[in-house]
């Protein structure tokens, strides 16, 4: 199952990438996809229940535009800080911790990457359920986890 799914994802990627549709290159593509599947079918679907990947796909598609908008807004804030002549008055770096209620590792990683991509905050460490975040300003620190965690949970956690 995991092998077949890996093979089809790889084949789609190959066809998008190759751009040559004669028999020679297509057969080479199939051989290459088989090789990759042979070597690393354990990597793409590692220890996950089978259908969860497909099920979480629409959720991710809804989540990504929101994340992108958040990144743009936060980037404008950082741009304001950087371009401000008295920058050192505006920043107040601090470390904060919070506990998350997300269960699956993939959703934890998604949350961590989203926090890191949003300027003003970097995920320093994940330990069990505890996130450690290094924030550039107090206001950026207070806005966590909040909205982002809820959205990641809605997109990726199984609704039980």
């Amino acid at each position: 199952m995991a092998k077949a799914a890996t093979f089809f994802i790889m084949l789609t990627f190959w066809i998008l990438m190759s751009g040559m549709f004669d028999a020679f290159h297509l057969s080479l593509g199939v051989v290459s996809c088989l090789l990759v599947t042979l070597f690393s079918h354990k990597l793409l679907f590692y220890g996950e229940p089978r259908r969860s990947w497909l099920k979480s796909f629409p959720g991710m598609m809804l989540y990504l535009p929101w994340l992108f908008w958040q990144i743009v807004v936060a980037n404008l804030q950082v741009a304001y800080i950087v371009l401000h002549p008295r920058m050192l008055d505006l920043i107040d770096p601090c470390l904060i911790r919070f506990n998350t209620c997300l269960k699956r590792p993939i959703s934890k990683v998604t949350l961590a990457q989203s926090i890191t991509l949003t300027p003003g905050t970097i995920t320093v460490n994940i330990h069990e359920n505890e996130f450690t975040v290094y924030a550039l300003t107090r206001s950026a620190a207070e806005a966590l986890p909040g909205e982002m965690e809820r959205r990641v949970g809605r997109a990726l956690e199984p609704t039980s």
Partner: peptide
């Protein structure tokens, strides 16, 4: 703090 500027502004 440099990481904030380097990592994120750059990726966006």
């Amino acid at each position: 703090t440099r990481l904030h500027a380097a990592g994120k502004c750059d990726s966006l």
